[in-house]
Simulated assay, not measured.
Amino acid sequence: MPSPVRTTAAALVVAAVAATILTGCSSGGSPTPDGHPSTAIVTGPSSTPTPVPSAFSTAVPQVRATVPPAVRVAAPSRIAVDWAGVRAEVRPEGVDDRGGMSLPPDPAVAGWYRYGAAPASTTGTVVIAAHVDAVGYGVGPFAHLRDVPAGTTVTLTDTAGDRTRWRIDSVALVAKRGLPWASVFRTDGPRRLVLVSCGGVFDEATHHYESNLIISATPA
């Protein structure tokens, strides 16, 4: 079953092999999250820092973050990858009650971290993640990204109908026990896109995949 970044687009993958936070992507389904805003909220300077998820979680109940909106920009609504016909709806997601990034229960729908960068942002990382599969839904489109080659184009369409194009420059399958999520969820630094899913060996005892597939892309 297929599956998954640096202060610049390629150094993160090297760093990703080294840190320590467990993340979860399960083949078991999750309840539907309540509420998906139609526009992104990108925060400017504030005394309240943007929340950084500790992991990608299968627990979907969402906790409202106390981040004051500063700038409203269009959220991504669709993603298309020029590889294996990968297409998916994208919904804004926040942080769940376990401190992880919420994900839509249906693997055919990807989640965009709404407290991070948006496609039209001039800095920071656009994070989009999805389950590989889930009971009751089957296999999702991100399951086909394990073998996506560098140089492949990713197109994001936002709620305003604008498109941004990105070129994949790195693909890495990384053990979940060593991922530096703070380096992924950045609102500063160069513009980049990071796609995340699960993969590698599926642990029957924990019902989680043991690795994350992390794909980094830069503006095309």
Rank of each mutant, 00 (worst) to 15 (best):
P4H: 04
P4D: 09
V109L: 13
V201F: 07
P180Q: 12
P104T: 04
A134Y: 00
A175T: 10
A110C: 07
L145Q: 12
P61H: 08
S38G: 06
S57I: 01
A16E: 06
R163A: 06
S77R: 10
R177P: 03
N212S: 12
I168S: 02
A84L: 03
E204L: 09
G161P: 02
W112F: 14
P190C: 06
F202M: 11
I214F: 13
V95R: 04
L103M: 15
T39G: 03
G29D: 11
P141K: 07
A55L: 10
F185K: 02
A15V: 11
S3T: 05
R87W: 01
V5M: 07
P180Y: 13
Y113L: 09
G136V: 13
T32R: 10
T157S: 07
L156D: 02
T20L: 15
V67H: 00
A118H: 03
S54D: 14
P105A: 10
V196G: 08
V196H: 02
E89L: 10
Y137L: 05
E89T: 14
A84W: 00
T164H: 08
V132K: 07
V17L: 09
L103A: 09
A59T: 14
A150M: 05
E204N: 05
I214Q: 02
S170I: 02
H131F: 13
P180A: 14
P69A: 14
R165A: 10
P31M: 01
H207E: 14
Y115M: 05
W112D: 08
D158S: 08
E210T: 15
V17K: 11
A217V: 13
T23F: 00
P2H: 05
I128N: 03
L22Q: 09
M1F: 04
S26G: 09
P119I: 08
F185H: 08
E93H: 07
V42Q: 02
Y115K: 03
V81R: 00
P219N: 07
P92M: 14
T43F: 08
T58C: 12
S57W: 00
S197A: 12
G85C: 12
P180L: 10
I168W: 12
P51E: 11
C198A: 12
A70Y: 05
A205S: 13
D147T: 15
S216M: 01
H36P: 01
G199I: 05
V60S: 15
G116P: 01
T20G: 13
R114K: 13
V135D: 12
R114D: 02
S170M: 05
